[in-house]
Simulated assay, not measured.
Amino acid sequence: MAVSKQVKPLFEGAAFDVYDRMCPARLVLEHVTSRWGVLALAALRERTYRFSELRRRMDGVSEKMLAQTLQTLERDGLVLRRAYPEVPPRVEYSLTEHGREAAELVTGLVSWVQLRMPEILQAHELRDGAA
């Protein structure tokens, strides 16, 4: 008879407070809400991308910045990097389950910003005109 060992998550029951400067959740929040983090998550919500395709989709991101962003999101468990043993090598990026949850949330913010841009630009004009 095999005995099943229950594995307890490392931080089960831990309380995290992003308002505390020492809280590790603050770093993850920064990763997810950075300019390139938001755009990477939103793009990967659309579909799986190869690196060069994702770079084209995220117009303006440097190769170095995209690589760093993807590595960080992969380390956070939000992005899955899958390398295929081919010549030339093929690498694809997709979202994990947690990544899909985060992407859904930030995509809502992206949609809201795009929808409200006329009012935001009008507020800019009013503010800049008053200055």
Rank of each mutant, 00 (worst) to 15 (best):
1 M>D: 06
2 A>T: 11
6 Q>Y: 10
7 V>A: 10
8 K>C: 00
8 K>R: 07
8 K>L: 00
9 P>W: 06
11 F>I: 01
14 A>H: 03
14 A>P: 03
17 D>K: 09
18 V>D: 15
18 V>R: 00
20 D>P: 04
21 R>H: 12
21 R>G: 01
22 M>P: 00
24 P>W: 13
25 A>F: 08
25 A>M: 08
26 R>M: 15
29 L>Y: 13
29 L>Q: 11
34 S>I: 08
35 R>D: 05
36 W>K: 11
39 L>F: 04
41 L>D: 12
42 A>L: 01
43 A>K: 00
43 A>V: 06
45 R>D: 06
46 E>C: 04
47 R>K: 11
48 T>E: 15
50 R>G: 02
51 F>T: 00
52 S>M: 03
54 L>P: 00
58 M>T: 05
59 D>M: 07
59 D>V: 08
59 D>P: 01
60 G>C: 01
62 S>F: 10
63 E>W: 03
64 K>T: 14
65 M>R: 15
65 M>I: 05
67 A>P: 09
69 T>M: 06
69 T>Y: 15
71 Q>G: 09
72 T>V: 01
73 L>S: 03
74 E>V: 14
75 R>Y: 06
78 L>F: 11
80 L>I: 05
81 R>N: 07
82 R>E: 07
85 P>E: 00
85 P>I: 04
85 P>R: 15
86 E>Y: 06
88 P>Q: 15
88 P>Y: 04
91 V>N: 00
94 S>T: 09
94 S>G: 14
99 G>S: 07
101 E>V: 11
102 A>S: 03
104 E>R: 14
105 L>P: 03
109 L>T: 02
109 L>Y: 03
110 V>E: 13
111 S>R: 09
114 Q>H: 10
115 L>Y: 10
117 M>K: 13
118 P>L: 13
118 P>F: 10
121 L>I: 06
122 Q>F: 13
123 A>V: 11
123 A>G: 02
127 R>G: 13
128 D>N: 14
130 A>F: 01
131 A>Q: 15
131 A>E: 14
